[in-house]
Nucleic acid binder design. Structure first.
Lengths: 345, 345
DNA sequence: TTGAAAGCGCTAACAG
DNA sequence: CTGTTAGCGCTTTCAA
């Protein structure tokens, strides 16, 4: 089919008058180990170089039962946060000599399950998944099977799989504390999908900060059920029209904050004079809004990088009697202060 | 290594008392063709279903010389435009039963070359690449070898490879014409990397629109050499401080527009009253800036989808005496009018 | 209607 | 220092 005929160990061996074995050994850097003569080795190496030959990874994979391939299933590559994770993972795995098979689950649990199964079938040596939803029990069996699999972002410590995520509790608490310091007492929270682990933890952090100041948690101003712009718009609108007297809004995602901004503008509330706002996930454009938005930043790159590190450690000790010390990593978050929080009183 | 022992055709055959061959045929839907008895077929199918068995794709790949795998090399997954393309490609290929091997070239030509080579080595059945730079001559040989490879975004018709990109010339012309209609005559252009095909075509469109109105092309106000925010900031700053009297800026990317906005704010020019601005690539947040930015939208999703269609067509006719009618696709762009263009006079 | 056997390209015992 | 051989899991002649 292609005009460039793939040549093989066998062909090279024939042409050079040596055995396949020798060629194989030289090409896989085992010349030293088998004490193959300098001369033979260079002949082979030169020829391979000239012909631009590399052993067929498919055949290798079949024989070795390892494919030098990592699977990544991600909820939604368009989302810049996930894109950041994916980018970092792509680079890190490449640098380690692995190829990346990417699967986008579109936030759909069924697709996610299929993707994971397909990837194992494809014999990936390891896998990273950003669970699409709040349920990842379907992944539990892989923990038992001791497969190299690490969870990112949406995680559950109980499931017995290594993971890396941000310290979402601290994030919620930190943002709320900031608002509190600036004199806010009525702080609404746009919570995103409440069944989501990240949402729950952030809201818990929010509640903890409030409790620290002796302020009651008011369920009426903790609202929302999606992480997107539309949700932020709608819930802010409802909140404002309900006449609840909030002086600040904590939006648990960037799109949520965008939606809130739109609602606020429509309702003629100035930001931050009338209503302060803090966003989550520091996308570059936040600095360019008016006003520039104060936000809680989590590092997608750090998450991706850490996931790869943990995964490869797992792969290394996979067959060793690894005692599966469950590497769970909680990455720190930081508050980026800009101009969307107003000092009260 | 894993507790779940992969079972194989051989094992199934043994357990069921039939031959591997039969199992293989049934499982690959060839039961009819070989007139295998209803009974045998269902037995095998049931067992496979129960055991959740799927033939090892690696072995299959080795035997069949086709891996059901597509390669994608992309300049930068974090860039939302490329992320959109990647997302669409991921979904489309998945729906067609293919897995996607992703490689991020980081906009680096060397990495891109390596990625492409590695992917062919990995025996991908087809490949899509978004060239990182203005040079893609290194891809020319694949055209000669008649490999299924399609270029996206940054393309060159002469190279003999099928491609899909936006109508960049029309895009530049359309945006400029809009400005012209609104009475602008001194229109600066933040051109991004000028060696880039997309930049060149858009600037040509800009020039054409100007020429259509008998306005001279002034090289002094067509500036810049990168597509990022920093570049937009710097070049706008210089432009303003040089005292050139521009009334509008055409920014050939979103980040460029963001940078321009920052510079404009610093220099106390109001948008759009003092200076109008049009951006490129419609990112969701553009609607949330103040003012909401008018922009030229190109559909990343459409590009990804089209690329996959063309690729699979190519793959289908790869060995047929395909007359290689060079499918080059120019996707239409559209102008999204918001509030950043002021009517003059 | 079914099976035996060869072989895809590679590596790893085992044997010198 | 080098080679022979078996076999990874699959599909496909060829033969029955």
């Amino acid at each position: 089919m292609f005009s460039r005929p793939q040549n093989s160990l066998k062909q090279i061996a024939a042409k050079l008058g040596v055995s396949m074995t020798t060629v194989s050994r030289v090409l896989s850097g085992q010349a030293g180990k088998y004490r193959i003569s300098e001369e033979t080795a260079t002949t082979i190496l030169d020829y391979a170089r000239k012909e631009n030959f590399t052993p067929n990874p498919i055949a290798k994979g079949l024989r070795l039962r390892r494919t030098n391939t990592i699977g990544l299933v991600i909820a939604d590559v368009i989302n810049p946060f996930f894109a950041g994770i994916a980018s970092e993972i792509a680079n890190a795995t490449r640098n380690l000599g692995y190829s990346l098979i990417l699967s986008d689950s579109k936030g759909d649990l069924t697709l996610e399950k299929q993707a994971v199964e397909l990837l194992w079938q494809r014999q990936v040596d390891g896998m990273i998944v950003c669970p699409a939803s709040e349920s990842f029990e379907h992944l539990a069996r892989y923990a038992k099977e001791r497969r190299p699999l690490v969870l990112v972002d949406q995680v559950s410590p109980e499931i017995g799989l290594p993971y890396v995520t941000s310290d979402n509790f601290a994030a919620g608490k930190m943002a709320t504390a900031h608002l509190l310091e600036y004199g806010h007492k009525r702080i609404a929270c746009l919570q995103g999908r409440p069944t989501t682990i990240t949402s729950r933890l952030r809201v818990q952090g929010y509640a903890a900060a409030l409790a620290g100041r002796g302020i009651a948690f008011d369920p009426a101003i903790v609202v929302g059920d999606s992480f997107d712009e539309q949700g932020g718009y709608l819930d802010t609108k409802l909140l404002l029209q309900s006449g609840r007297d909030v002086t600040a809004i904590l939006a648990l995602s960037d799109p949520l904050a965008l939606g809130a901004l739109r609602a606020l503008a429509e309702e003629k509330r100035r930001v931050p004079e009338d209503v302060s706002i803090i966003a989550f996930d520091d996308q570059p454009f936040l600095a360019h809004l008016s006003p520039p938005l104060t936000t809680v930043a989590q590092s997608a790159r750090a998450m991706g990088g850490a996931a790869v590190k943990i995964l490869f450690e797992r792969m290394r000790v996979a067959d060793a009697a690894g005692d599966a010390n469950n590497a769970g990593l909680l990455l720190p978050v930081s508050l980026i202060t800009r101009k969307s929080v107003h000092k009260l009183g």
